[in-house]
């Protein structure tokens, strides 16, 4: 049993991943509310936009840890999502503040479904990776 840097990065990843799961749950709920007319798109965008960048950064941070600790498998699993995040943010609508969502275009049915699907897929991904990190942590910890 050895407490090494990889073990440390897995532990941190576990904790951060829990946050990410919460973010994506929030995301899914928010878009569901939009779809069912519970909320005004302006308010909803105001609450969604501030958490976009933190989510991306947290995710990036985990991967930097993996990179440093040489956990290549976990890193490769996460790479596509990083690329997607960068792509998504580069193609965001013109806006002055941080964030992705524009209240004038978000009610478009296409945008709405894409965002909702994105939320679900991310939720699933974070959940799966949570178990992966758990497994990875145990493997690292019990490795001699």
């Amino acid at each position: 049993m050895a407490f090494s840097f990889p073990a440390f990065s897995y532990i941190i990843a576990l904790i951060i991943d829990a946050f990410l799961i919460f973010f994506s749950i929030f995301h899914v709920i928010a878009f569901d509310e939009l779809k069912t007319d519970y909320k005004n798109p302006i308010d909803q965008c105001n609450s969604l936009n501030p958490i976009v960048l933190p989510e991306y950064l947290l995710h990036l941070f985990i991967n930097i840890l993996f990179l440093l600790s040489g956990e290549w498998f976990s890193l490769i699993i996460n790479l596509p999502l990083i690329v997607y995040h960068i792509y998504r943010y580069r193609n965001r609508p013109v806006m002055s503040g941080p964030g992705l969502y524009d209240p004038t275009s978000i009610m478009n049915a296409d945008v709405l479904t894409v965002c909702q699907r994105e939320g679900w897929i991310k939720l699933a991904f974070y959940l799966l990776s949570f178990f992966l990190y758990l497994y990875g942590m145990i493997v690292v910890l019990i490795a001699v």
Partner: peptide, 17 residues
């Protein structure tokens, strides 16, 4: 039947408003 996209000058406040 659902409305997919609106065209014109306005602000879409909810799916059909």
């Amino acid at each position: 039947i659902a409305i997919h996209t609106f065209h014109g000058n306005f602000f879409v406040r909810s799916t059909d408003l």
